[in-house]
Nucleic acid binder design. Structure first.
Lengths: 146, 146
DNA sequence: TATTGTTATACTCTATAACTATA
DNA sequence: TATAGTTATAGAGTATAACAATA
């Protein structure tokens, strides 16, 4: 029995293996600053590109981040003119966020260049391995929001 | 076409989706301090439990962490008497690390209680979804070391 | 000279608590 | 009072650079 099997055969082993791999991948992804944007900044911008005119609170909930943390992410994106803030038409407390043309262009450019480091690692896998990850991706997405 | 599909159909989409899910999962896992040990500390201890008598350098390489970062992880584990350091028999520069009985007991206890938050989330998936993750886990492990 | 490990230092990401403005 | 957002502050995790000890 090899190690990968022993790690993932039981449910506890699956959780432990995933937890450790996720932490390690996260560390390595953070070290690869592909775009000038942190992973969190990129995620926020991409979410905003899909769901227009979100408030900071909605965006924080979507990304499972605390509002003050999101404030800083938003400030960094605004600083780079990748998003704009407009007042909510009826609720004076709220702010609406939208991606700018420059932000959309950056996202497009990123996708064109792909996510350099991770894409390269994916290319080194077999087609079958990639197929499994393609199936797993929406499950990981669901887990990350659960 | 739903969002998960559009995200994972292309290779760039797969990389982007995985990257964002991994970052979000990592954030949530870090927020769940199950054991008193951080994820990095747990990973180091578990690696040491499998491969006995590693040096700090080997452990850092194994976990894809820089040596000074690993120094701090090791110090925290030693402080809690979960590992011991012994001088290398022939190379005076090196140190050998080994899990203590207390460290092994902690790992065993952790596995018994499972990795609380993530295990709970896994229980909420269907059997089929878990089966896919079980296939994906060794691939993610491989990616995390690539 | 090269390698192992540590110390010093700093940066990024994120969190909690407290505050302001509006509802 | 309750909610949205921000500011102030702190902590965890990690990195790079510089150093000491040994090979």
């Amino acid at each position: 029995m090899n190690m990968a099997m022993s790690q993932t055969r039981s449910r506890a082993g699956l959780a432990e293996g995933l937890r450790i791999s996720i932490a390690r991948l996260s560390r390595r992804l953070r070290a690869q600053t592909t775009s000038g944007l942190s992973v969190g900044q990129h995620a926020a911008l991409a979410a905003l590109d899909r769901h227009h005119s979100m408030s900071p609170r909605e965006l924080a909930d979507h990304e499972k981040m605390q509002p003050p943390s999101m404030t800083r992410v938003i400030a960094a994106l605004e600083e780079q003119e990748l998003l704009v803030r407009t007042p909510h038409p009826t609720d004076g407390r709220q702010v609406l966020l939208d991606v700018t043309d420059k932000g959309r262009e950056l996202l497009r450019e990123q996708r064109r260049r792909k996510q350099a480091w991770l894409s390269q690692r994916l290319e080194e896998l077999t087609a079958e391995e990639r197929a499994i990850l393609r199936q797993a991706a929406p499950i990981l997405e669901k887990l990350s929001r659960a």
